[in-house]
Design a protein around this nucleic acid. Structure first.
Lengths: 185, 185
DNA sequence: TGGTTCTTTCAGAAATTATTGAAATCAATA
DNA sequence: TATTGATTTCAATAATTTCTGAAAGAACCA
């Protein structure tokens, strides 16, 4: 039978591996490794930690820790807590994976898709109006507009879909997703 | 009425804006700006272009163009074509936005989610087996395992969902997505 | 085969992004 | 209000990613 210490060491090791693999994926999704690691750490340990604990565990500077934590708060996937008799701030991760994921989708849509969509509308509306010029040019213009429209319509569909998913009532999509995968050939 | 030249200039301008805004979003999703721009250019012009044309239009080096094109080919969202009597290779973008998006999802799942999932399984399987040690440690271990399981189960659901979406037959999800957004409150 | 054209590769340079750490700010306490 | 401790900010630096350009490699042709 494993001793208390051995078992604890193994859990810590598993946590570290979790944190590392989470951090690895970060780059591919446009967030910094540290930010992902801090989140992973809070999620997998499940207990509130203060800035110093996070710094120590991840071996990062105070500034970096502060900024990463702030970013996670802005994303809405971690929250502040306090400990009686301790002036330090503690942070804990949302423990519901689905709600966490919803926050991420919400933020990314707001930050990246919505501005893009706005720009696409602008581009469309600034397009030259069809005139009676030569057939060839006419065709080119129409084809251009069609491509713009298709992209726009795709992104709008995605936007609406994400809204459904993200809205409180839309959490039913969690069930839908699970059901959909149940009936797998 | 706009002259031929004016109209053409305006289309080019719209294309450039499209390319730029596409490129801007790239960073946030972990692909290089140039790669996104090259794809945007091929998509929005709708016509096959060779390496030199892409280089000129995006003002990039030959090396960069070659590597970006290669990456887009690997992702399966552009394809090679040829012009009779021209030894150069031409490239054109998949004009179907949904099929394009499916390719992107397929590749990202394969490259990022699947490896992560594999690592998560590894971590779980290397976890210490529950033993008869103290209740506190026992509880901690069980909580740790529960968090791992929840994350695993979430990612597996996502994986299955994406497979449905990505598979040829799964293109029905396009319809489903559109339908879902139709009934908007 | 040698010459020509097109394509890929990759070491180094440039640009971008992430991180540090010390100073400034803020907050609680007495 | 001064003191102490916690937190944020940000200019400087480090690390990483992207890009260039020249050289090597292929493909084609006469």
């Amino acid at each position: 039978m494993a001793s208390r210490d051995t078992q604890h060491k193994k859990i810590t090791e598993a946590q570290d591996r979790f944190v590392a693999s989470w951090g690895q994926m970060a780059g591919a999704w446009g967030i910094s490794r540290t930010m992902a690691e801090a989140h992973a750490l809070l999620y997998i340990t499940g207990k509130p930690m203060n800035t110093d604990e996070i710094m120590d565990r991840l071996q990062i500077s105070r500034g970096n820790a502060s900024m990463s934590i702030r970013a996670l708060l802005d994303w809405g996937i971690i929250s502040r807590t306090h400990k009686r008799g301790d002036r330090k701030e503690y942070f804990e991760a949302d423990q519901d994976v689905w709600s966490m994921f919803r926050s991420i989708v919400r933020e990314r849509m707001k930050r990246e898709v919505e501005p893009l969509l706005a720009t696409l509308f602008e581009i469309r509306d600034a397009s030259p109006a069809p005139d009676e010029a030569s057939g060839d040019q006419q065709k080119e213009l129409l084809a251009h507009q069609k491509r713009l429209e298709e992209m726009l319509s795709f992104m709008q569909t995605m936007e609406k879909l994400s809204h459904r998913f993200v809205s409180p009532s839309g959490s039913g999509l969690e069930l839908a997703a699970k059901l959909l995968t149940k009936f797998d050939k």
